[in-house]
Design a protein around this nucleic acid. Structure first.
Lengths: 184, 184
DNA sequence: ACAGGCATGTAAATAGTTACATGATTCG
DNA sequence: CGAATCATGTAACTATTTACATGCCTGT
């Protein structure tokens, strides 16, 4: 059976404890969204499909009077998740509008090209900060025996910091060549 | 008027010289595809739309008996491109299946988690190599007065190399903790 | 009373890939 | 002659986002 990547996000998210669609969405937004996002429009239909396929099981778990269904992984679901984890990853996609703009920046004066890089730097610095703010929570998970979220988070922080450095160097370089342009 | 990002890829690609849809696709595959891809299914319809909007202009440019239409940017198209370049980039997306798998790797033995990182490393090393192979061409463009493709390419190489380093460190760390697991 | 968060869902639109069809030309 | 490349296009499919609808519960 062919499952979408979103299906595996869900399987992974319910693999440790049963969760509702709403909780899965919130978790994705706090964790994987930086390298794999998912919206309600994907999550709820996918929960139905996975339940129909017997990979997860929905259980009524109301909070007070408010209806709520949490989904728990089944043995078949766990097998499917592990199977997927054991296969080489196939999707590596980057869509970075800043790089695209920089690629075409030859039609602009150098200073404006530097501005593109400044935007990229600011964005990456902000992202790094956001991720650092998530570290305490991930550290708690680590102490509770789940080291991978922290591992991945630290990778993300480092990656963003490196990009900030690259932007700084590139900005300097472009501003220097802007000065040369001006002195011609 | 609202244009898709793919529209700007096309505007950028025809901004220096007139090109056919086929050439645009080939160029995208050699250059921007690492941070912004485009398929025929997007390019040909978009060329029609841009021509209808007066941002590019199609000219018959047969090669021998083979029909061929190249599109040149118009002054309006150039204005639209510059306008877009002067606005802060809004799209920053990463979809990395390896990170997703690593995030959920707690359900696997440590050695298998390390394998995920090994796959990521191999992929990034391959990508870095591919990009390095493109350097001579980008250097030629630089000498011809187009420095940005090389600038972006070098950024891509560096970025992939850093990721390889991160993978190496992470792999070592996971294999060490696998040994600890075994000696328990 | 009302804002904000919890909870589930769907419809419509947009984006993007894949696969296919067609036919010319060039090179070995 | 056959394979590869040049060249243009479309149809079907899959993925994904956005926006909306509904209603309950909790805290101020």
């Amino acid at each position: 059976m062919e499952l979408s990547a979103t299906a595996y996000v869900i399987l992974g998210m319910v693999s440790r404890e049963a969760r509702s669609g709403y909780e899965i969405k919130a978790l994705v937004d706090e964790t994987t969204r930086f390298f794999w996002a998912a919206s309600y429009g994907q999550i709820y239909p996918e929960l139905k499909r996975l339940a129909a396929a017997g990979l997860i099981e929905g259980v009524d778990a109301p909070r007070g009077e408010r209806k709520r269904t949490v989904y728990a992984i089944t043995p078949e679901g766990e097998a499917a998740l592990k199977d997927w984890l054991r296969q080489a990853p196939a999707t590596f996609e980057l869509r970075e509008e800043g790089l695209l703009k920089l690629f075409f920046a030859g039609v602009l004066p150098r200073e404006e090209a530097a501005e593109i890089v400044r935007w990229m730097r600011e964005h990456r610095a902000g992202q790094a900060e956001q991720l650092r703010a998530m570290e305490p929570e991930a550290r708690e998970k680590e102490e509770a025996g789940e080291p991978f979220p922290l591992l991945v988070l630290r990778g993300g922080i480092e990656f963003n910091e490196r990009l900030v450095e690259w932007c700084e160097r590139t900005e300097t370089q472009l501003l220097e060549s802007a000065r040369e342009e001006a002195s011609d």
